[in-house]
Simulated scan of single mutants.
Amino acid sequence: MQKTLYIVRHCQAVGQEANAPLTSEGNLQAIALADLLFDFGIERVISSPFIRAYQSIAPLTERLGLSIEIDNRLSERVLCATPLADWRERLAESFTNLDLYLDGGESSRGAMARGIAVIDEVLQQEANTIAIVTHGNLMALILKHFDDRIGYAEWGKLSNPDVYRIQFFNGATQVERMICANDISINQNLHY
């Protein structure tokens, strides 16, 4: 079996709420992202239901003539139901203690499991090259599943947008960063 997954973090958005859309720059990033991903042979796209994720990949799917499949399991992880003054410290702790559960939140292990469930299903299906669009925390946890060296520091280096490629070939897995916000050139020559 040879499969390639592109795990995509959404472009720049106006906020963190589920209905927060992309900023003007984020919309331009989405068009530039489509230019960069267009020749990658993507056959299928699965996205978080959050508007910013959907909007980040829409220019690509329109150019490729693909539909966006929505999967609620790709929604961002909620660390805690209430705001925390020390949320960064608690998030860092959640990368070393995967079972850390804060009031009304979701453990890293739980979030990782739902993200990996999507990937496990995709690996059993026909398409060989798939884009999965999600959010920073869940993206980092998915990547950590395949490479335990990934943690809080790597989460902190993620950009909006960001793309990692995970390749599966004969039981081996390779994870590599493909595109980050610095690779996105917003100019007048964008295709849309």
Rank of each mutant, 00 (worst) to 15 (best):
Leu36Lys: 08
Leu138Ser: 08
Ala113Ser: 12
Tyr152Trp: 13
Ser159His: 03
Ala127Gly: 08
Phe168Cys: 05
Ile186Lys: 09
Asn128Gly: 12
Leu79Cys: 08
Ser47Glu: 09
Met1Ile: 11
Asp86Ile: 11
Glu43Asn: 06
Glu62Thr: 13
Cys80Phe: 09
Ile142Asn: 02
Asn182Asp: 15
Glu93Met: 11
Ile116Lys: 04
Gly156Tyr: 08
Thr82Asn: 15
Pro59Tyr: 02
Asn182His: 14
Arg90Ile: 08
Glu62Pro: 02
Lys3His: 11
Ala32Lys: 00
Pro21Leu: 07
Ala153His: 12
Glu93Pro: 00
Tyr54Lys: 12
Asp162Lys: 02
Gly136Thr: 12
Ile51Tyr: 10
Gln125Lys: 15
Asp35Arg: 01
Pro21Glu: 09
Leu28Met: 12
Ala111Gly: 04
Gln125Thr: 14
Gly15Asp: 07
Gly15His: 07
Val175Ala: 11
Leu102Pro: 01
Glu69Val: 13
Met112Gln: 11
Gly105Pro: 04
Asp147Cys: 08
Asp35Trp: 02
Val14Gln: 12
Asn137Ala: 15
Lys157Trp: 13
Phe95Ala: 05
Thr134Gly: 08
Ser75Thr: 13
Leu123Thr: 04
Phe95Met: 07
Leu64Cys: 07
Lys144Gly: 00
Asp148Gln: 13
Gly104Gln: 11
Leu64Gln: 03
Ala172Tyr: 10
Trp155Tyr: 15
Met178Lys: 14
Val78Pro: 03
Ala34Gly: 02
Ser107Phe: 04
Gln12His: 13
Ser185Cys: 11
Ser56Pro: 00
Asp103Ile: 08
Thr129Gln: 11
Val163Met: 03
Ala111Glu: 00
Ile46Gln: 06
Ala181Pro: 01
Ile31Lys: 06
Tyr6Asn: 06
Arg52Val: 00
Met139Thr: 15
Gly26Lys: 00
Leu102Trp: 05
Cys11His: 00
Val163Tyr: 02
Ser107Val: 03
Ala172Gly: 10
Leu102Phe: 03
Glu106Met: 02
Phe146Asn: 03
Ala153Gly: 12
Gly65Tyr: 09
Glu62Arg: 12
Gly156Leu: 12
Gln16Met: 13
Leu123Ile: 06
Leu37Gly: 00
Leu138Val: 10
Glu121Ser: 13
Ala117Gln: 09
Val8Gly: 00
Pro59Glu: 02
Leu79Arg: 02
Arg73Trp: 01
Lys157Tyr: 13
Arg52Met: 04
Met1Ser: 13
Gly156Asp: 10
Glu176Thr: 14
Leu22Ala: 05
Ser47Arg: 06
Ala113Gln: 11
Leu84Phe: 13
Tyr152Lys: 05
Pro161Ala: 02
Glu126Pro: 10
Glu76His: 07
His135Ile: 10
Arg114Pro: 00
Gly26Leu: 01
Asn27Val: 09
Ile42His: 00
Arg149Ala: 15
Ser159Glu: 09
Asn170Arg: 09
Leu123Phe: 06
Ala172Trp: 07
Arg90Ala: 08
Ile57Gln: 04
Met112Gly: 00
Asp103Tyr: 12
Glu69Arg: 12
Asp183Trp: 07
Asn72Pro: 07
